[in-house]
Amino acid sequence: MNKELEHSFVELLEKHQNIVHKVCRLYTNNQDAHNDLFQEITIQLWKAYPKFRGDAKFSTWMYRVGLNTAITLYRKNKRRINTQDFEGVQFKIKAETYDDTEEQQLKLLYSAVHQLNDIEKALVFLYLEDKNYKEISETMGISEVNARVKMNRIKTKLRTILNP
C-alpha cells in the first residue's frame, strides 16, 4: 500500500471517526472492548479502502463496514472482564440539559437498547443516524418492508423492556 493511500485514509477516518465510536458504544460495554472494536473496524476499513470508490460517500461506506465488523467479523475478546457497567460510562448527559428524571429515563432507554440483539441494535443505530429505510434495507440486506416491520417490533420490544 502506498503512503499516499495511507495518508488519505487516515485523514478521512480521523475526520469521520465519530461513526466508528458510535458503533463501538452500541456494541461494547467498557473502554477496553470499545478500543478493541475500534481497532478492528479501522483494520477492516483499511483493508477495504483500496476498493472504495469515490461514488459512494465515505461516511456511508463506513456505516456498512463498521456494522459488518461489529455484527459479524469481530471476535469478542473473552479474556477481558467487564469492569464497568454500560450505564456508568457510556453516555454522559450534557450539563445544560441536566434534568434528573430526563437523565434517568435516558439511561434506562440506553440500557434497554443495549439489551437488544446485534441485528436490532444495527437497525436502531441506523435509525438514530437518520438513515432512511432504503439505506437501512441496503445496509442490512433485507427488504424495505421488512426493515419497517422490524423497526416497529423493536419499538414494541423497547417498551416492554422499559415497562415490564
Binding site: 485514509f9 480521523e14 471517526q17 458510535k22 459479524t72 467479523l73 469481530y74 471476535r75
Partner: peptide, 21 residues
C-alpha cells in the same frame, strides 16, 4: 462527547493485524 483519536493513533492502528472471525 466521543473520544478524539489523533492522526498518529489511527495510523498505528492500520499497521496492526486483524483478528476477525
Amino acid at each position: 462527547t466521543y473520544p478524539k483519536l489523533s492522526y498518529n493513533e489511527i495510523y498505528k492502528m492500520i499497521l496492526k493485524k486483524s483478528s476477525s472471525i
